[in-house]
Write a protein that binds this DNA or RNA. Structure first.
Lengths: 346, 346
DNA sequence: CTGAAAGCGCTTACAG
DNA sequence: CTGAAAGCGCTTACAG
């Protein structure tokens, strides 16, 4: 099957290739008759413009990429696919071309972002999974490539970000626990380098402060978003601080570790210890008991990110460089009122 | 930041663009000195060849794509990301370029596979999530595009497939149940149009036959890989056939539905009813009780598929067009010996 | 070992 | 409204 090109349809239709090109690019000053004829022939021949050629010759750049950092590490939580769906849907609705580029922190050291994008004439990218100490962060700050980051905010007039309002969401989660009567609430937090870690901790502190409850530094742990580490740390916490009655975890994955630790010590969830997670990954609702958590709509995050990116690329008016996507606190069965033991604390 | 091209490095290095091109394409008949110089300059300038231009001008095609059909529907099981990792890893290890193309059954009607691939000069694709009644199946059969299908086998000398040995795996799963003393085993099967459905059913039948146990058609249900439908059907089965003591489910997602149904009827797993799933999605080990299931290594499947595809593209010797990737029966806690009631059956 | 040149499949001013 | 032509950034015979 010989590849059919613009020449073939031009010849068949008896017009020049310029004309064929024009009808395919939506030029309006084309005779209706020739336009129809070209379209008909193109259809018969099953012609589609070659995107490489187009992107080479065209000045308008309409390629956007989704860069997924450390895909395999983040795989369990399965958030990337949803973001992908959102970004992809946006490109489908508009006339952007979509590219997926998996990267790793290692690769960032070897090949600049600029190179990745130049290779494919990509005009901007949404990036997920970047940590504050990743090499690309610095590059993004000093370059002028349009970039939208998921879950991490950095400076620059060509860079935006989208996420849920992590501080507010964490605040609500902790406030939920507080309203249930819990006072000694541990925070199982993520990797210190992650922006969300800082924000979620701020929400935790704010909620406690509002209720005039002292923040106990020893109840704040950083488990690097790891189920196993969270489990270990929770075990320690449970052993050393018997007055603990609740955990707020900065990710569902860590909440799973925490729940395992709680069960290990023979306590029950939520009667003895309440747990709130963050993310609402697929797993969350299938845990026993089903996990109360902060639901983020990752597909929406992807869609919004792509939308914002396109505004940067098209040089359109930007109202806000940082977009908050709505979250909701989904209360399932890992949270309940603190049980008041006889001679309880306080 | 001006885009830097082959011309820039040629000028800087004082050579022709042809020479620069040659060093970047690994030609061996280049003076060592000029080669080093070109490389140095290219590095200083942060030059990378533009892939669009390369793919336009080059005759060798080194682009492969992963087509993911109905991504969003299959999202829960989260198998696609693993396949993606596998295919991507292969392209990284070789010098193929990787493209991801999400498609839907709807889109298949509007745009031929050929068109999708022509657009980007893609020489072959691995496709996941295709059903036997999808439009592309016919197109693949009559075209001559190198294609490797995951989980579905079709005819053609330019098409291959990779999957676990579904019949054998199902056989082992059911045999496991049989060896535990179960005799009345329901099969919660998938969508009839899926090839895996047929194969897994064959394995189920084979296992029963070997033990001379009659296959009861009424115990075989097709739940379309849906959790909810499986739940409904299992409920009916449980109601109408009280002698049932085990379920073999053709996917973990359906196993989840079945487990819900069992709990709904007040029975316990595995004491009253044993359950075996298929896939070993992330969820499986977090269920209560953790699900016994057939583990497939989807990343390996992706990697093998890409490997096979490259052989088609490069016109290399193909030993087998269908590759079986090893599976393992992972026994967790949803299966146990059939309890022998007083006056039990048989 | 290396340069000059044709060509890949398009887009887009420029004329008319 | 449409054609002719330059040009996008490369690769690759063809000479020498």
């Amino acid at each position: 099957m010989k590849k059919i090109t613009i020449k073939d349809v031009a010849k068949q239709a008896g017009v020049s290739i310029g004309t064929v090109s024009r009808v395919f690019n939506g030029y309006t000053d084309i005779g209706e008759a020739t336009k129809q004829k070209v379209l008909r022939i193109a259809d018969e021949l099953e012609y589609t413009p070659n995107l490489s050629a187009r992107s080479l010759s065209s000045k308008k750049k309409r390629n956007i990429a989704l860069l997924l950092n450390n895909l395999e590490l983040n795989n369990k939580a399965n958030l990337s696919m949803d973001i992908l769906s959102g970004v992809y849907q946006y490109t489908q609705e508009t006339d952007f071309e979509f590219f997926l580029i998996p990267i790793t922190t290692e690769q960032q050291k070897e090949k600049s972002l600029q190179k990745f994008l130049n290779e494919r004439d990509i005009s901007g990218a949404v990036i997920q999974g970047l940590k504050t100490d990743d090499p690309y962060i610095k590059e993004i700050e000093k370059s002028s490539i349009p970039i939208v980051l998921v879950d991490i905010e950095i400076a620059g007039d060509h860079v935006g970000s989208v996420s849920v309002d992590n501080e507010q969401a964490a605040y609500e989660a902790v406030e939920h626990l507080l309203s249930l009567g819990h006072e000694h609430i541990a925070l199982m937090n993520g990797r210190k380098e992650a922006k969300v870690t800082v924000n979620r901790e701020a929400g935790y502190r704010k909620a406690l402060k509002e209720r005039q409850i002292e923040v106990r530094q020893e109840l704040i742990q950083y488990a690097n978003f790891s189920e196993d580490i969270a489990q270990m740390m929770a075990l320690d916490l449970l052993k050393n601080y018997p007055d603990l009655t609740a955990f707020f975890c900065a990710s569902d994955i860590m909440a799973i570790g925490v729940m395992k630790a709680i069960k290990e010590t023979g306590k029950t969830i939520p009667e003895d210890i309440s747990v709130v997670g963050f993310d609402d990954i697929t797993l969350a609702q299938y845990l026993t008991p089903p996990l109360s958590t902060v639901t983020q709509n990752m597909k929406d995050i992807g869609y919004q990110a792509a939308t914002l990116l396109s505004r940067f690329i098209l040089n359109e008016e930007i109202e806000r460089q940082h977009i908050f996507v709505p979250h909701v606190l989904t209360i399932r069965e890992t949270t309940t009122e603190r049980k008041t033991k006889s001679g309880a604390l306080r």
